[in-house]
Write a protein that binds this DNA or RNA. Structure first.
Lengths: 166, 166
DNA sequence: ATCGATGCAAAAACTTTGCATCGGT
DNA sequence: ACCGATGCAAAGTTTTTGCATCGAT
């Protein structure tokens, strides 16, 4: 059987749940002999406002326009730690840029992506859990994570294609 | 003609399947008003020897060391066409580099990847087809493709971790 | 007072593009 | 002959790194 880690439930609607995630990150950093700085706190804060997939650059712009100044380098360095700490995960929608998403306290999701418009729809991923576990077992792998990305054409894009064809 | 070499990895049952792939590409190019050049033929040839995931740079090195000279730019330009033509697909294992794999004439596979060693194991993907179709239907998407990547720790890497810990 | 963290700019890694020339059709 | 394709090098993107200084513990 594959190990599952449980984290306190994080609810985007409830600001009080921010503290636990922050503590988790703090403990993680402390355990590694790393420091909890105000920059890291601000980045985590901004990350936790994200309900959808986001990019490093986005984070940087948002933080700058809300007068919290952080360098690009620190953003990248901190995102790495947040991934290791399993607060966020890399989504891999596009080979040319890393996309991130909060994963702590939320059930795993797959991503349905429109190849024409870039629109992304999330969907629950429970159903493949059994398959994933079996594949891992068959090859003696210890499960770390999994991602399902479906590429398609959204109804809107299909309609637009039809309009343009006529 | 470049497409008459034997490619044990790809042909499996029928070496004659190579010609059809070449024709498919040719027709694809023709239909777009593009040209079937000897560079493109060589690249397709080399691509079809690949049984596993590969990178653009790898292709370039292999072609150079086997006296076929192609530029990096042409490799990238041709890979794009091969993706569009659905002879190969992008695999998205790593956000820092595009990985490709031949997909024409093979059943779709998922990828089990060791996060420590980078080892990759493929597995058949039929089982999630129904789920994928259902998700597409539910959102009115027209299916284009899908990929499942499982990340884990391979038995070898796990053993090595234990060795290092002691 | 330690180290690790930060910011900046430079570098790195991968991919794309401009342009003169070549070559399929 | 036309117009897309090629090679080269330069440019573009995203991410990483070196280094002097700052700041958490």
């Amino acid at each position: 059987m594959v190990t599952t880690h449980s984290h306190p439930q994080y609810d985007g609607d409830d600001p009080l749940m921010l503290a636990p995630v922050c503590s988790i990150f703090r403990r993680f950093l402390h355990d590694q002999g790393l420091k909890f700085t105000s920059e890291r706190a601000h980045i985590l804060d901004t990350v936790l406002t994200k309900t959808e997939v986001f990019e490093a650059e986005q984070l940087l712009n948002e933080m700058r326009s809300s007068d919290q100044k952080v360098s690009k380098a620190t953003i990248y360095r901190t995102l790495k730690h947040l991934v290791e700490c399993q607060i966020i995960e890399e989504v891999l929608l596009d080979p040319r840029q890393t996309h991130y998403q909060t994963c702590i306290g939320r059930p795993p999701t797959g991503h349905l992506m429109c190849v024409e418009s870039g629109k992304i729809v999330e969907f629950p991923l429970e159903e493949i859990r059994e398959l994933v576990n079996r594949i891992c077992d068959e090859h003696g792998f210890q499960h770390v994570g999994h991602r399902l990305v479906i590429q398609g054409i959204s109804p809107e894009a299909a309609q637009q294609d039809r309009d343009e064809a006529s």
